[in-house]
C-alpha cells in the first residue's frame, strides 16, 4: 500500500508540475486539478462528519460538557437542514450568517484588541532586549502613524516615518521572510515529490 500511495503522489505531482512547463501536459494538469477540487470539497465534508461523530460520542457517553456538544450538534443539524433545503444564499441563511457567525467571529476578534494590547504592555517586563524594544517601538510608531489628528495627519510621523518604516524597513524583512518561506515550500514540495516525506500516511 505504501508503494502505491507513494507512486500516486509522485505521479500526480510530476504530471501537475509538468503542466507548468510543457503545454502538452496542461490538459492533464487541468483534469487532475479539477479532480482535486472535488476531493478537497469531499474532504471538508469528512471533517465535518468527524466533528459530528466526536460530539455525538460525547453526548452518548454523557461526558462533562455534553450539553454543549448537544447544542453544537443541534446547531449543526439545523443549519445543514435549512441550508440543504433553502440553499446557502437564501435570506434565512443570510440571517444565520449575520446573526450568529459574523457577530461571534467579530466579537472574538474584537477581544483580541485587549489581548494584544495587554501583551504589548507586558512585553518588556519579561524580555527587555533589543528585539523586544524594536518590536514595541515599531508597533507604537505605526499605531501613531495610522491615526490622525483633528487637523490632519500627524506631522513627520504620519507622512514620512510611518510610510518609510512600513514600505522600506519592513519590506526588507518581509521579503527575506517571503523568500525563506518560498525556499521552505520548495524543499518541502520536493521532498514530497521524491517520496522522502509522505504526509499522506506512508511513513
Amino acid at each position: 500500500m505504501q508503494v502505491i500511495t507513494a507512486f500516486i503522489a509522485i505521479a500526480s505531482g510530476v504530471l501537475v508540475l509538468g503542466g507548468y512547463f510543457f503545454p502538452a501536459l496542461a490538459g492533464v494538469q487541468t483534469l487532475l486539478l479539477n479532480w482535486a477540487i472535488i476531493l478537497a470539497g469531499v474532504a471538508a465534508i469528512v471533517g465535518i462528519l468527524n466533528l459530528t461523530s466526536v460530539h455525538m460520542d460525547k453526548i452518548r457517553r454523557g461526558e462533562k460538557g455534553s450539553a454543549y456538544s448537544a447544542l453544537l450538534v443541534i446547531g449543526l443539524a439545523a443549519t445543514f437542514f435549512f441550508g440543504m433545503i433553502l440553499r446557502p444564499q437564501h435570506n434565512v441563511m443570510q440571517m444565520v450568517l449575520n446573526g450568529i457567525i459574523v457577530p461571534v467571529e467579530a466579537a472574538l476578534m474584537g477581544l483580541l484588541t485587549v489581548s494584544l494590547l495587554y501583551a504589548a504592555i507586558r512585553l518588556l517586563r519579561r524580555r527587555t532586549d533589543m528585539m523586544g524594544v524594536i518590536f514595541l517601538l515599531t508597533a507604537a510608531l505605526l499605531f501613531l502613524g495610522s491615526a490622525t489628528l483633528p487637523f490632519g495627519d500627524i506631522p513627520l510621523i504620519g507622512t514620512l516615518i510611518r510610510p518609510w518604516v512600513s514600505q522600506i524597513l519592513a519590506l526588507g524583512g518581509a521579503r527575506g521572510i517571503l523568500i525563506g518561506v518560498a525556499l521552505g515550500a520548495l524543499t518541502t514540495g520536493l521532498r514530497v515529490l521524491f517520496a522522502v516525506d509522505r504526509p499522506y500516511g506512508g511513513t
Binding site: A9, V16, L32, A36, V192, L193, P199, Y200
Partner: peptide, 9 residues
C-alpha cells in the same frame, strides 16, 4: 496521496 502529490507540485 493524490492530493498531497498534486499540492506539492
Amino acid at each position: 496521496a493524490f492530493l498531497v502529490g498534486a499540492g506539492a507540485a
